[in-house]
């Protein structure tokens, strides 16, 4: 799946198509929300980006476990690629959320549990990339990164619960609406369809990016190996 040019090409095309449809749905299919106005349309891709951010780090967690068990190089590549992509989506989610929060909550930032946890989570994975950068031996780098990916991911829910006790004002989208939540809105079915389709699309975008990132890593490693061989020759 990761090595074939053909699979990558098809995946790229499918992803581009889905992204076009999702964008069209956000702007033309979903109705304008009454109390917040146009900015509510940010919500669809915001939720999708935040979801992919979390899912990507979960993939790194699983890849870390599998790497430690099997020692297969591909799982190290997947873990690394997934963190990079996850960080991009986490920043996208945080930035778009912030832009939505300005008109909805009248502030760019609150110390709400989900926001705070997301920020701390992003810092964990920045640290992950720095750790990788600081280690020269590839085998050790892979092992340490796997361990940190596991430890970091386990800490995320605990961090969330520790901050949770400070009351949340983040709207609860699925399930009952929190009484303290501002900016909650009633979702009509076109809205729900748009959100679910956005989440699905972003998941495919994630897989597409992951495949391409691993292929880029393969290229980098080939160049590196060639360099070493040239120097030793």
């Amino acid at each position: 799946m990761f090595k074939s040019d053909r699979v990558a090409q098809i995946l790229n095309l499918v992803t581009a198509g889905l992204l076009l449809v999702a964008t069209a749905m956000v702007f033309f299919y979903a109705p304008t929300e009454v109390t917040m106005g146009a900015v509510q349309r940010v919500f669809y891709f915001h939720v999708a980006a935040a979801w992919v951010g979390l899912a990507a780090f979960m993939v790194t967690f699983v890849a870390g476990l599998v790497y430690l068990r099997t020692g297969k190089h591909l799982w190290d590549q997947i873990g690394h690629a997934s963190v990079e992509i996850g960080l991009v989506f986490t920043v996208m989610g945080a930035a778009s959320g912030s832009i939505w929060a300005r008109p909805a909550w009248n502030t760019w930032w609150t110390w709400d549990p989900r926001l705070t946890t997301y920020t701390i989570m992003a810092l964990i994975y920045v640290a992950y990339l720095m750790l990788r950068q600081g280690l020269d031996d590839p085998d050790r780098r892979a092992r340490f990164a796997a361990i940190y990916g596991i430890v970091g991911f386990i800490s995320v829910p605990i961090t969330f619960f520790s901050i949770r006790i400070w009351r949340t004002i983040h709207p609860v989208v699925v399930g009952g609406s929190g009484d303290a939540a501002q900016g909650t809105f009633h979702m009509t079915s076109p809205m729900l369809q748009t959100m679910l389709f956005s989440v699905f699309t972003f998941s495919v975008v994630y897989v597409c990016l992951l495949v391409n990132r691993v292929r880029l890593e393969d290229l980098a490693e080939r160049v590196e190996q060639l360099k070493v061989r040239m120097l030793s020759a």
Binding site: M36, G37, A38, V39, M92
Partner: peptide, 14 residues
């Protein structure tokens, strides 16, 4: 309904 179109543009620009 408040006019929040500029925020929408900013959001999708990001």
């Amino acid at each position: 309904t408040p006019d929040t179109f500029n925020y929408l543009l900013l959001g999708y620009a990001v």
